[in-house]
Computed example of a mutant assay.
Amino acid sequence: MPREGRSLTWVKPGVEAPKLSIVIPMLNEALGIETALALLQPLRETEVEIIVVDGGSTDHSVALATPLADTVVVSDTGRARQMNLGAERAHSPALLFLHADTQLPEGAVEQISQALSTHCWGRFDIQLEGHSRWLPVVSTLMNLRSRLSGIATGDQGMFLRREAFDAVGGFPDQPLMEDIALSKRLKALSPPACLGIKVVSSGRRWDKFGAWKTIRLMWRLRYRYWRGVSATQLAKEYRNAR
């Protein structure tokens, strides 16, 4: 198994740098990682590299992901650390951070390329899928909030130019709200490109803990973060609430 600083990498000899690097953080995703990566396989033939960064899974996630990715690397636990390490391993001038339970829409790579020709970063609209009948409402509110605030969430598939990622210092090393913090840093460079085509993301969190309970929890945590409460403290509250 690879350790931090070492990776299992497949490099196509004589091929130029990929046009997009997709960085996927994962932790104990054995039930779904094969399906998620299988959907991305056609992109590997179109100058797109897939980098999976494991945060110390105790299941078979790494073994399942290795044949379906260009690079698999094991990091310390923490989504921000995992994504930063994945960015270090990336070879493309364009980065896409994609959650393991999120699927890209058709034409996503072309849309990203077009968006990054005029913006330094952006994100997709989102469609949450699950059992709760409230998920379409949650999705609509997430998209509206993001357009009004210029803040993206990791579930929305954040993409950006490598130079912008480096300019803001990547994701801050914090256990929660790393996507919000990165969005705020990037907003200082430019507003985001808000793509109307939708990524499809799992609503398992809302299904498991209840839609409105989860909404209240996330809004409370965001409000407290805005008021200056540390991400470390909020991460403890989030774990306790779950």
Rank of each mutant, 00 (worst) to 15 (best):
T102C: 09
S57D: 02
L116K: 08
V15E: 13
G169A: 08
G5Q: 05
V199Y: 00
V229S: 05
P25W: 05
R161V: 01
A193S: 14
R145L: 14
L176F: 11
L217T: 01
N143H: 11
M83W: 12
T71A: 10
R145P: 02
T232C: 02
G228Y: 04
L176H: 05
A241G: 02
P42A: 08
I33F: 09
Q111T: 08
E110S: 14
R185V: 09
L64W: 07
Y238C: 14
R147L: 07
G196I: 01
S21H: 11
G5D: 00
K208F: 07
S202N: 06
E237N: 03
S117D: 10
T140Q: 00
Y238T: 05
R242E: 10
L39K: 13
A94N: 09
Q156S: 02
Q41T: 05
A38D: 14
S230E: 07
T118P: 02
I215Q: 03
A94Q: 08
V15K: 11
R224H: 10
G203F: 00
R242L: 15
T232W: 03
K12P: 13
M1C: 12
W10Q: 10
K184Q: 15
E178M: 11
R242S: 04
V199K: 01
G196D: 01
M177I: 02
N28P: 09
A164G: 12
L96I: 10
D125T: 12
V53K: 01
L186A: 02
V23Y: 06
F124D: 03
L98E: 09
T66W: 02
M1N: 09
S132M: 09
H131K: 07
V200H: 03
N240H: 04
N84Y: 12
N28Y: 00
K19D: 06
S139K: 03
A241K: 03
G170N: 11
S92H: 13
